[in-house]
Design a protein around this nucleic acid. Structure first.
Lengths: 338, 338
DNA sequence: CTGTTAGCGCCTTCAG
DNA sequence: CTGAAGGCGCTAACAG
């Protein structure tokens, strides 16, 4: 491995001078700078970040902790985050939590050990509080994306869940639905809680009735959807829903599949809409009506806030950025479309 | 920051003893081990990886360099790679190249500086040779996924392009097509070259004619597809194709969009099939016929080979793993489906 | 089983 | 403008 000592020897200067050249210190004569740079080129020297971090206390590495990189929603967040991080010279360390708090916890420990400069996280839910406290205790800045955790303050960028839910419900009501079910994420996740609250609020505002059975609490990335949907479709007491609102793309798509297995037609027999587009590439034949959240912006803005925080350029007060989503009406909620 | 010195002082032992406890060295008395561990708990000590790497020469960080995390194909590779890496205690540093060799080059420099233990890469193309040589020169192991680069040897995991292309062409021929066009990736990318070669081979094997204009060389993640498709559809000399084969999901979806803008119906007016599924979540209403490559396995196996190489457990000879793909016939190539 | 010494590659600090 | 000394946190290598 080529070190500053090798360069120094060959250039007949001290290692310190080499270090200064590398770091573009102002106080270097043009002559020595050129000489040193030539030798750096010649020996193909690359600075060792590990060593540098040991004294500088910064690694220029930030981490993105998300539930699942294979979900297009988080993938798009990752893309936005990566673009911004790259722009500021930070590298991105990726972590998948699979919506499991313990996996998340282990990741946080690894990140702490790796001395990352900051963390952009979509926390699994309330249990995240414990490991987020670890970050806070060690003064590692972090920013919430998509979800937040009660009891711990941090900058936050998320979708406007209330507004988005209202839009989706309004659309369904407009289509004539009076009995709408919600298949939600786990109540420990802030976005699920907010969507549930906004959902019932919206129903009431539209003068609609709802029963507890109309709202199902499940998971964002795995569950037995056939059973869930079947139970929903066999509701007799409070009446069978004519529309289902799914709290994310994964639930949405799996609801469609379950309905198909039951030989129910969408939208003829039942309408379906969801949060987040399941299509990463704008598609030719999209089907599902969705409220598309600006995932790229979430990643981009979240990373921007994080970097500002890391570099001490952020205001003392924590910021909260609410991003609007776009209602994309497609076939799954419209019967009268050619 | 809590260091082994803090622990040592409080435990009345030397820092070295603390180091031994952390690293589960065998020669530590049960008593001191417990005492030290208790204080580690109490002070909430987390080892500094940077410092450790400085002497150990390993970072337990591997990098994944791919063209675009927002493409579901690479996303799924990333997921497989992350799962395997995590399983072996490695963290994943992510890099997007956007299919640009210079961006890729800058990333490699950053990775080298970060002292990553290895790199799993889907190279942009032949120009990658230069920076891959840098890796090789510094003995940083790397493994190719999806694509390889001529002139430099490394373990490789990729789809069986010849076989896959054959299957796709056979399917189209079976559907009665005699004039098939290929919208391919750039010739600098090995997978594009192999697909082109396999494509013409397959046409010949099926006794079909082809003209140079039937094969269009474009890019995997951006281009003016309306113009490309329009030029293809206005071929008069050699005849207008009745089917288009797209070399990846992005091209496939954009071809569909371009055709729709031209008011051409798929599959009635023209059939379309592509490599790689554009759907990250198995969808309810899939449309495009695809040859789905096992992207998850590519990431998983690629990372496995990389880790074996890093840990000196790989055979001297470079391995080449060819993965079969699955032909999923959907509406875009079938007229007679209910 | 435990401690001492030295050094990983670089940078801060202080001299000159 | 340049250099020497010391240290970042940890661990090999050697003593005891």
């Amino acid at each position: 491995m080529v070190t500053i000592y090798d360069i120094a020897k060959k250039a007949n200067v001290s290692p310190m001078t080499v270090s200064r050249v590398i770091n573009h210190a102002p106080s270097i004569s043009e002559a020595t700078r050129r000489k040193v740079e030539a030798i750096i080129q010649e020996l193909d020297y690359i600075p060792n970040k590990q060593a540098r971090s040991l004294t500088s206390k910064e690694t220029k590495i930030v981490s993105l902790v998300i539930p699942d990189i294979s979900n297009p929603f988080f993938t798009t967040i990752a893309r936005g985050a990566e673009d911004k991080a790259h722009q500021f010279g930070y590298q991105l360390l990726l972590g998948n939590t699979d919506e499991q708090a313990d996996k998340e916890s282990r990741y946080i420990d690894m990140l702490l050990s790796a001395q990352v400069d900051g963390v952009l996280i979509a926390p699994t839910g309330e249990p995240s509080l414990v490991h987020l406290r670890k970050l806070a205790k060690r003064k590692v800045p972090f920013v919430f994306a998509d979800r937040h955790v009660d009891g711990i303050a941090a900058d936050l960028v998320m979708g406007d869940n209330a507004e988005t839910t209202r839009k989706l419900v309004a659309h369904l009501v407009e289509q004539g639905h009076r009995k709408i079910a919600l298949i939600n994420g786990p109540d420990t996740a802030s976005n699920a809680r907010e969507r549930r609250q906004a959902f019932t609020d919206a129903l009431i505002l539209n003068g609609l009735q709802w029963a507890p059975e109309d709202i199902i609490e499940t998971h964002f990335r795995q569950d037995n959807f056939p059973d869930i949907v079947r139970s929903l479709m066999s509701l007799t007491l409070s009446g069978r829903p004519t529309a289902i609102l799914a709290a994310n793309n994964f639930i949405g798509v799996n609801t469609l599949r379950a309905l198909r297995e039951m030989n129910l037609r969408v939208p003829e027999d039942i309408a379906v809409a969801c949060f987040d587009d399941p299509e990463p590439i704008p598609d030719y034949n999209p089907f599902l009506t969705v409220a598309a959240q600006p995932a790229y912006d979430m990643g981009f803005i979240g990373m921007q806030m994080l970097i500002e925080r890391i570099e001490g350029k952020a205001p003392a007060a924590k910021r909260k950025v609410l991003l609007p989503s776009q209602l994309i009406i497609r076939k799954s909620t419209q019967q009268d479309v050619e």
